[in-house]
């Protein structure tokens, strides 16, 4: 346990010394700021519209951004250590392989949590300008909790992929492919289920729907509902991916 904390803290600190981290944060804030401003202008100029700007306005684009950002956060974690030979140091230190993997993931998750928490400034700003009525911050809490779990799951997948490579760039592209694959598979499933809803539902359709990565966020938390199924779904991905990474590290010791 203590080892996990030590490794996580080191990774977390190192993010703040790395240019990628700053680049990511700036891109995310700029992009979200632009989307937010456009939405705001549109809503205000459209006075006859019944549409009201919701607190979740930045969450949709944020989800798209994290799909691209998480591979950059995790690419170095294990791949670079292997490439530079520093993994030898960690694997001969009195630390279990699982502690190393979980510590790495936790460091990345803490860093991601800081970025996510900071994006809350947009809803807070919205609240400030829509006084006296204000917007409801309540649904945002559950949305952010599930979004954080979703990001955690993406990071865990990234850690798993990073464990396979000895080069950060290769790990980045492999994680990006998987990340986009999860996203696209969601689109495919929703299209299929849309077509299926016209012809009746099948067991296969239900399974596909349960497996869909983004719908566990969009269908419930995004609309302000906290559903245990979604939490179980993302936590299982985290556990499985980290278990996979640990096994990879272990098996590579033999070679």
């Amino acid at each position: 346990m203590r080892n996990i904390g030590i490794i996580a803290w080191k990774e977390f600190r190192q993010y703040f010394g790395s240019p990628i981290a700053y680049f990511l944060s700036i891109v995310i804030f700029l992009f979200l700021g632009i989307v937010f401003a456009l939405d705001l202008v549109q809503t205000m100029s459209n006075t006859y519209s019944a549409q009201v700007l919701e607190g979740t306005v930045v969450l949709g684009p944020l989800l798209t951004l994290v799909l691209f950002a998480t591979p950059a956060i995790t690419m170095k974690l294990l791949a670079e250590e292997r490439g530079q030979g520093t993994l030898e140091l960690l694997l001969t230190a009195p630390v279990r392989d699982a502690e190393l993997v979980v510590g790495k993931w936790l460091g990345a998750a803490l860093f991601a949590a800081v970025i996510l928490a900071l994006t809350w400034v947009y809803p807070v700003f919205l609240q400030a300008i829509t006084k006296p009525n204000g917007i409801d911050q309540g649904p945002l809490v559950s949305a952010y909790i599930v979004l954080f779990l979703l990001v955690g799951a993406l990071l865990a997948v990234g850690v798993g992929i990073s464990s396979l490579f000895s080069n950060a760039t290769a790990a980045f592209f492999a994680s990006l492919v998987v990340s986009l694959g999860l996203w696209v598979s969601g689109l495919v499933t929703s299209t299929l289920s849309y077509m299926g809803s016209m012809g009746g539902t099948s067991l296969w359709g239900t399974v596909m729907q349960y497996m869909d990565f983004t719908s566990h966020f969009y269908n419930t938390a995004y609309a302000g509902r906290l559903d245990l199924t979604d939490i179980v779904y993302y936590v299982s991905i985290i556990v499985l991916s980290l278990f996979f990474a640990t096994r990879v590290i272990e098996s590579k010791r033999w070679r």
């Binding site: 030590i6 190192q14 530079q84 520093t86």
Partner: peptide, 28 residues
């Protein structure tokens, strides 16, 4: 065991002190 591998694995972006503090922490 204290080990100095052939490749002398060090983190280039850490200071000497940070690095040794980290190694000391891992050894409790």
């Amino acid at each position: 065991v204290g080990y100095l591998p052939e490749t002398v694995p060090l983190y280039a972006d850490m200071t000497v002190l940070d690095y040794l503090d980290f190694m000391a922490a891992m050894r409790h």
